[in-house]
Amino acid sequence: MTARISYDDVEVGTELPAAEFPVTRDTLVRYAGASGDFNPIHWNEKFAKEVGLPDVIAHGMFTMAEAVRVVTDWTGDPGAVVEYGVRFTKPVVVPNDEKGAVIEVTGKVAAKLDDEARTVRVDLVATSDGQKVLGMSRAVVRLA
């Protein structure tokens, strides 16, 4: 376990490099296959609208997977993540066009938790179409 960011080099407020993750219908079909989540609200527009959604929506777990990439891209070592949690507050609506949707993620160090374990808490903010799509999105990461 060798995160490339040193605990001593970060402080509360340190910002992680932000990232944007595009999502199209194609992305959702691939994610359905890889994750085994074939709920039709993630690929069938007719079904999604029948159950009261504005359109097909992304898997919440897909959004969760993308958001933590800001952390794993920063540390280099995905195994440095010791805790990760989110609340699903709003769906990411994915229209059936070439553009689809974009998930924008920012993160910053919110607390230095343990000088010995060298763990920090990173708070993430994920938005799509100007709406916050995750709440309480936090990761605890062990740094070098």
Partner: peptide
């Protein structure tokens, strides 16, 4: 049912 929140401790 909808997914409300999710947390992992590794």
């Amino acid at each position: 049912v909808v997914h409300g929140d999710q947390r992992f401790a590794y």
